Amino acid sequence: MTRQTLAFCVHLFTASGAALALFAMLEAGANDWKMMFFFLLLALIVDGIDGPLARWAHVKKFAPHWDGVLLDLIIDFLTYVFIPAYALAQAGLMSAWGGWLCAIAIVTTGVVYFADTRMKTEDNSFSGFPGCWNMVMLVIFALRPSEWAIIGIVGTLCVAQFVPLKFIHPVRTERWRRLSLPVMLAWCMIALWIGLEDFETPPLAAAGLIATTLYLTFAGIAMQVVPARKPTAAE
Rank of each mutant, 00 (worst) to 15 (best):
E27L: 06
E27A: 13
A15S: 07
V46T: 12
L22P: 09
E27R: 13
L53P: 01
G17C: 03
A54T: 00
L20C: 05
M25H: 10
R55D: 03
I45N: 08
F23S: 14
F23D: 12
F39G: 08
Q4L: 02
S16L: 10
F13M: 08
F38N: 12
F8I: 06
F37Y: 15
W56S: 12
A7G: 02
H11V: 05
H11T: 04
A7L: 01
V59C: 05
A24H: 09
A21Y: 01
D32I: 02
L12H: 02
L6W: 07
G51S: 14
R55Q: 04
V46N: 11
F23I: 13
A57E: 11
F23Y: 15
L42T: 13
A43R: 11
F13A: 10
F13H: 06
D50T: 06
L41T: 15
F8A: 08
D50K: 07
A54F: 00
L12C: 09
V46D: 09
M36D: 12
L44S: 14
W33Q: 03
F13C: 06
G17A: 00
K60F: 01
D50W: 00
G51L: 13
H11M: 06
L44M: 14
F23M: 15
G48S: 13
R55G: 02
W33T: 00
F23G: 12
T14Y: 01
A28Q: 10
F13R: 07
I45S: 06
D32Q: 11
D50P: 02
L40Q: 15
A43D: 10
F8Q: 06
V59F: 02
F37M: 15
I45L: 12
A7C: 01
W33N: 04
L22D: 09
T14M: 03
T5H: 11
F23A: 15
D47N: 09
G51P: 04
G17Y: 01
P52N: 14
L41H: 12
Q4R: 07
I49Q: 10
A28E: 08
G17M: 01
L26D: 13
F23T: 14
G17S: 02
V46A: 10
D50A: 05
A18D: 05
F13P: 06
I49K: 08
A19E: 07
L41F: 05
W33C: 00
R55F: 00
A15H: 03
I45F: 03
Q4G: 05
A30R: 15
V10G: 03
I45D: 09
F8W: 03
A21T: 04
A19P: 10
M35N: 13
A43W: 09
